[in-house]
Nucleic acid binder design. Structure first.
Length: 442
RNA sequence: UCCUCAGUAGCUCAAUGGCAGAGCAUCCGGCUGUUAACCGGAGGGUUGUAGGUUCGAGUCCUACCUGAGGAGCCA
């Protein structure tokens, strides 16, 4: 096979109209019509249909006839604009080199027909090749890039907290236990406590990394291993934190609409829903949210009447967020249902200076944040009230002894953000290899 | 941990307690513009596992296994 032809990418194939190019990829599908073949090639950037008449390209015809789905190939052909082609361009194939043929007696398991969830999850390593899954992963990458650009351009420094930790961060959820040279250790459930320390060193910081929860949660919103971005700011109060969360979300939605509109359309996302996402986001207090739930109950839209003082359940969050067309910020929850490190509201110490951001369309909580306790004495008292081991938190208390100040931040679950922006039914499709209660393979 | 549902060909599914079937995939044949191509033919089964009821169980009963959806908890 001659090698002068430039290697082209399918997503930029229009640049090569009229040229002979080389494509390196996989046979996505093959339609046969007698002495005419219509192979569809996939190269990771897109899919293009080729045309192979037997009498014009006998070598390519013989190489492709009967070739199995997902066989790897190097093909050469001339790019031609064609209105009949889904992408606007077709390839008049002249040469084909089969790099590896998928065996006929053990064909590629994922056909173009429908498959069940269990089968697809068992073949996740291959499922990723389908255009829909590839588009979701591209959007995920764009969201992560937007997050990092957002913080990097605003003076935040990326500081990576440890993944192995000696104690629970918040003392609430179940953690994965690890044998650390015969000492007990855990996989982190949040880097927050550590980035409070780096924030005192660098002013504005963020972390982006995996977190682990051993909860036996079994819903469309849960993974046992997920990625979280956590900004933390010294000398910041609750309003600063809410402004930051609002800025982050409008920024990443805007970026995805700008750069990944084609992928959003490919997966069938209603883009109009995302175009509504603009500041200001509604900000309501916990008390106001409870009023909304009570009104909903009175109108028969909620089964049970919410009792003030508890945390919102999943149906409650869905109902509250359904009242708005953009993310809603619910702030000042009862301190009792929140983490030990949250600063009490000076106006009403029963409340914590915290905020949850609920995504629209029923996606629930994607961000949780708070102002942290600045006082050494109060923090020590909270650690005792929550029966946490004081010795393990000595370093954390030091942050209040040596230059304590009002500070805070939030955590955003990347997979939940991706699920919302993509309009997915389940977070399992937002990460290449999801880890769930019953899923450790592949 | 609790509640609900499901498990039949490689995949997606059908089969009133009475001969285990279809589409896709694979193989063989046909078709020069196919769009999850189409048309004809072939091969492909321990009906999740174990027990029970029955003349007879994919179907009914019990237990278990596996998975899905939800609750709680959370991002």
């Amino acid at each position: 096979m001659k090698t002068e032809a430039p290697v082209a990418r399918i997503d930029e194939i229009g640049k090569h109209e009229g040229q002979t190019v080389e494509l390196r990829g996989w046979l996505y599908n093959l339609r046969e019509s007698g002495k005419l073949l219509f192979p569809q090639f996939r190269d990771g950037s897109g899919v293009i249909q080729g045309v192979v008449p037997k009498n014009q390209a006998p070598q390519a015809f013989e190489a492709l006839k009967g070739l199995t789905q997902e066989s790897s190939v190097i093909v050469r052909g001339k790019v031609r604009a064609d209105k009949r082609a889904p992408g606007g361009y077709e390839l008049d194939v002249s040469d084909v080199q089969v790099v590896q043929k998928v065996p006929e007696d053990d064909p590629y398991p994922i056909s173009l027909k429908e498959h069940g969830v269990d089968f697809l999850m068992e073949h996740r390593h291959l499922w990723l090749r389908t255009p829909r899954q590839a588009a979701i992963l591209r959007i995920r990458a764009e969201i992560i890039k937007a997050v990092r650009d957002f913080f990097d351009s605003r003076g935040f420094v990326l500081t990576d907290p440890p993944i192995l930790t000696p104690a629970a961060c918040e003392g609430t959820t179940t953690l994965f236990e690890v044998d650390y040279f015969e000492e007990q250790a855990f996989l982190t459930q949040s880097g927050q406590l550590y980035i409070e320390a780096t924030a005192m060193a660098l002013g504005k910081v963020y972390s982006f990394g995996p977190t682990f929860r051993a909860e036996k949660s079994k819903t469309r919103r849960h993974l046992t291993e997920f990625w979280m971005v956590e900004p933390e700011m010294a000398f910041a109060e609750l309003d600063d934190i809410m402004n930051l969360a609002e800025g982050l979300l409008t920024n990443i939605v805007g970026r995805v609409l700008e750069k990944r509109r084609r992928e959003l359309e490919l997966i069938g996302r209603d883009v109009a829903q995302l175009e509504k996402i603009a500041a200001p986001f509604p900000r309501i207090t916990y008390d106001e949210a409870v009023q909304i739930l009570h009104k909903g109950h009175a109108e028969g839209k909620l089964d049970t009447k919410f009792v003030w003082g508890g945390d919102f359940g999943s149906p409650d969050e869905t109902y509250i967020s359904a009242q708005f067309d953009r993310p809603v910020m619910v702030h000042r929850y009862p301190a009792e249902v929140k983490a030990f490190y949250m600063e009490p509201d000076p106006q009403d110490p029963k409340l914590a200076l915290c905020v949850d951001v609920l995504a629209p369309e029923g996606y629930g909580e994607i961000i949780g944040g708070s102002q942290r306790i600045a006082s050494y004495g109060l923090l020590l008292q909270r650690i005792h009230e929550h029966n946490l081991p004081e010795a393990a938190f000595k370093w954390y208390l030091d942050l209040r002894k040596y230059g304590g100040n009002p500070h805070g931040g939030f955590g955003m679950g990347i997979e939940r953000a991706v699920a919302w922006i993509c309009g997915l039914e389940h977070v399992r499709e937002t990460i290449p290899f999801p880890r769930m209660l019953h899923r450790l393979y592949p």
